[in-house]
């Protein structure tokens, strides 16, 4: 196993870079990080639409949520792969395609988590903030979101961990992220799939586990002194 790491380690970590495009674990990390960072604001926006009193905002987003929730991610990736170039008239690279698919798919799931977090707070929080003279959006920003975020943290992390794992589906559109690279290595070695995929599995586990631990630490830090009233 060590000799596999010795021979293919660098390829596993960064793909063909610098002789070709960046790939491997580095691409997975970048893709996951970008997907998380972009999907979160999308999720907040969709959640606000979903609980909006205005039908014009609420109904289309509710429709979108139902459609995407009832569709496998793989299908969304196919759509993005074949539909995006048709819509934009430009060829999109695999990275952009995968990122778009992840952001919209996870944005929808995050939206539902955020919506539940907001609706789970007592009504009095909104009312007392509005009574002081804060606008709806200022109330959301200053009073509702900070509290909802703490309550949602475990579910958010769950979703973030999923996102990391979902990047592996980039394999299907030949995105050279770490799963794709691992399968290439396995194909070259022919006889060592167990070892190669063991390394791959361990890699995902380490990424997800560290994120979970970080979230746990954050949760405990935020929970200090601000228990339920």
């Amino acid at each position: 196993m060590l000799d596999i790491i010795h021979n293919y380690g660098l390829f596993y970590l960064i793909g063909q870079y610098p002789n070709g495009p960046l790939g491997g674990l580095a691409m997975t990390l970048i893709l996951a990080a970008l997907a998380l960072v972009l999907a979160f604001p999308v999720g907040v926006l969709l959640a606000l639409c979903r609980i909006s009193p205005y039908r014009l905002l609420r109904l289309p987003v509710t429709g979108l949520v139902y459609v995407l929730r009832g569709t496998p991610l793989l299908m969304v990736i196919f759509w993005a792969y074949f539909l995006l170039p048709t819509l934009t008239g430009q060829r999109t690279d695999q990275f952009g395609t995968m990122l778009a698919a992840l952001v919209i798919f996870d944005g929808v799931y995050l939206a539902e988590i955020i919506r539940a977090g907001i609706l789970g707070l007592p009504r009095g929080q909104m009312e007392s903030s509005r009574s002081l003279g804060f606008s709806y959006l200022a109330t959301m920003r200053l009073v509702i979101m900070p509290q909802a975020f703490r309550n949602m943290l475990p579910s958010l992390v769950n979703q973030f961990v999923s996102t990391i794992k979902e990047t592996s589906l980039g394999y299907i559109i030949s995105l050279s992220e770490v799963s794709f690279v691992a399968s290439q290595i396995s194909a070259q070695l022919l006889t060592k799939p167990v070892q190669v995929y063991a390394v791959l599995g361990l890699t995902y586990f380490v990424m997800c586990f560290s994120l979970s631990r970080f979230a746990f630490w954050l949760e405990r830090r935020l929970a200090v002194r601000t228990a339920e009233v």
Partner: peptide
């Protein structure tokens, strides 16, 4: 409505302090 409310103090049965 926001300007109006900022000139009226309102105290609730359930206090509704901001716990964070």
């Amino acid at each position: 409505v926001n300007a109006l409310r900022s000139g009226i103090g309102f105290v609730f049965q359930q206090f509704n302090l901001f716990p964070h």
